[in-house]
Write a protein that binds this DNA or RNA. Structure first.
Lengths: 371, 371
DNA sequence: TTCCGTCTTGAATCCAAGC
DNA sequence: AGCTTGGATTCAAGACGGA
């Protein structure tokens, strides 16, 4: 085993190929300090129990694959520490790593990263523009995943293309929260049956931003949990070299086909990375949370014929009618609908102040620093 | 010390006061299972070396940087584990905790939470609408902080006011990413010199959303790192009881003054939108007992594709299937479940009348004559 | 061809009361 | 404690089909 490792170390890196096998073993067989960036999407250890149905009775296709099952936190920690150690050995001194996860695993991954000597640069939140809702109404919509960006060690001269990310963000400094859609439509790879080829395929837009921001053309990017090869595909488009490691033959096959089709600097694919921006929706509740209105305060219709009291959750109560500013307005007017923003005002210093001015105020703040 | 602890345990909770001292000691002196919610904003400086025990690892040289780093992490982990354990002891079985942190400490906090038996419900991102920019352009703008919401244990029946949070968000399910401004302006407390009284004062909007969403009026909320008392201030406004613990006299003083000025919202304003689950259950059989439906009468599915006959005991029979309104509906639709109240209707005067209107009628009567 | 309504789907730790 | 039963619960996109 040692002989084999030594022999391989002398060899050149297997660039732009997908290696098969357990990622820890494979990584240990590659020459140390040879990789510029690692992107890793390890199993999340979701610990799902029963089935879950949508309100329309359809069943959610859960991630129940064997590769996501661990017997305990300790087992998961051991796995995490081992692959992180192997990954760190492969990194050049100025190399860096990105790891993505959810609340199920990311805290353990982050702690292991720190324990192993990585130096966290940022945690980055991928805010999904179209997440799956919480169907039972028992928790908050799980609308984001967390990525950790870390250098190999404290003081490492990691790559950060500040200006490139700034221009991706319309001239404003890129923030630690990125709004991007999940991977759907034609980008989502299907198997022979027409089912999704991989349960957790990441969007190319995410990798695009990561690779533009933290690698240069010609850099070597390694992905130890290659899956269907999103990292490789984006790396190839952007003129970076990739190395993929994947245990499952089915995923490797899909990834090979995908990569064969990818062209460097694919214009169309880069378009995907730009997220749309619409007029931000301002919930009325924000006016209460931000202290612009106080629970218990009265709102008046602009014609002063009706009034209603603001409650702590942003609903109104007036004459036995409870509901949103729109619902209560409509009910009081006997109208099918009502724009509460223009219907209601408050009295300040004897004057009527339409509540819409508060919304405009919040929108103005948001416009200062979009996205 | 033990005597004091025992004596205190027998006492009533020191509600709506700020306790001075080390939070671990103070928490251990309070009676167990007495608190509904804990909000914690722990310090994350890793400069705890020397104060606490070093890890038992004799073969590593003391001047090794990696060892220093590990030592520092180990000390922080020890501190975290201890205060979390004390906090968990204080929680009622159905209690919950919120902890806020940044990438410096949140991964260690999250892992400790899991190790100590808390059950993570969501991680929530506070996305700052006005963060401080990264001046040196070496990293992404650190524009968010992370909060972890966890129940005392797996299966705990934590409080979650789903409808209230949905209302705060204009009728759309609340997500795990919250856009709120940082604490500035008149809300930001100043000391005698006009400098900020506390370096990391949290905005009241953040606590408003947390307390509306995960507590009820009258609940006891504890904050072991009270600082300038944002948790207490919002708790008081919202008609919750608070207990603060703070080590620094200067912060306690600022907090006391602040809390003295806070007014509670009026009772009506504290009522929030309720889930349908909170409404009293009405057995279908009541509709027959009260003569709203006659045995032998036909019910029709809303799409008129199925029908079933009402029996005297409140069960249905249709196409060989017998059972409750829910069971028969589910069986006819081949669905895993079915809400019979919204599935079935009767025909009166040629019109379809959903049977749910009868349930609402009964509930209205119950509200008129409670108990 | 375009528009509009319907159907499908996504890393999910997703129920609670009563017997 | 464990089982049974009632009945509450979803948002944004893209695909697809019919007008």
């Amino acid at each position: 085993m040692t002989t084999k490792t030594k022999a391989k170390s002398a060899q050149a890196l297997p660039l732009n190929t997908i290696l098969s096998g357990d990622c820890i073993e494979v990584m240990n067989s590659l020459p140390e300090a040879s990789v510029d960036l690692i992107f890793a999407d390890p199993p999340y250890n979701l610990q799902l129990k029963g089935e879950l149905h949508r309100p329309d009775n359809s069943q959610v296709d859960a991630v129940d694959d064997a590769w996501d099952q661990f017997s305990s936190f300790a087992a998961y920690d051991k796995f995490t520490t081992e692959w992180l150690r192997a990954a760190r050995r492969l990194l050049k001194p100025n190399g860096a790593i990105w790891v993505i996860g959810s609340y199920h695993n990311i805290f353990r991954v982050g702690a292991s990263l720190q324990n192993e000597g990585f130096w966290i640069l940022n945690d980055v939140v991928w805010r999904k523009s179209n997440p799956m809702p919480n169907f039972r109404g028992k928790r908050l919509t799980n609308a984001h995943e967390t990525m950790i960006w870390a250098s190999k060690e404290e003081g490492g001269k990691y790559t950060f293309n500040y200006e490139a990310l700034k221009s991706l963000n319309e001239g404003i400094q890129m923030r630690s929260d990125w709004v991007l859609p999940i991977c759907t439509g034609h980008e989502r790879l299907k198997d022979a049956n027409g089912d999704k080829a991989h349960p957790t395929q990441k969007p190319e837009s995410l990798l695009h931003r990561i690779l533009v921001g933290s690698t240069n053309p010609g850099d070597v990017v390694l992905d130890p949990f290659f899956g269907t090869g999103t990292t490789g595909a984006v790396a190839k488009m952007l003129g970076r070299d990739y190395i993929g490691i994947e245990r499952e033959a089915a995923y490797r096959e899909v990834a090979e086909k995908r990569l064969a089709k990818v062209r460097k600097y694919d214009r169309e694919a880069l378009q995907v990375s730009q997220s749309k921006r619409a007029e931000p929706r301002v919930p009325f509740g924000q006016l209460i949370e931000r202290g612009m209105l106080r629970p218990g305060e009265n709102l008046y219709s602009m014609n002063l014929r009706h009034k209603a009291k603001v409650r702590a959750d942003g609903t109104l109560i007036g004459d036995d009618i409870k509901g949103s500013i729109h619902q209560v307005g409509a009910a009081l007017e006997g109208a099918p609908s009502c724009n509460g923003w223009t219907y209601w005002c408050i009295k300040r210093d004897g004057k009527q102040v339409p509540i819409d001015v508060f919304r405009q105020q919040i929108r103005a703040e948001m416009a200062d620093r979009p996205n």
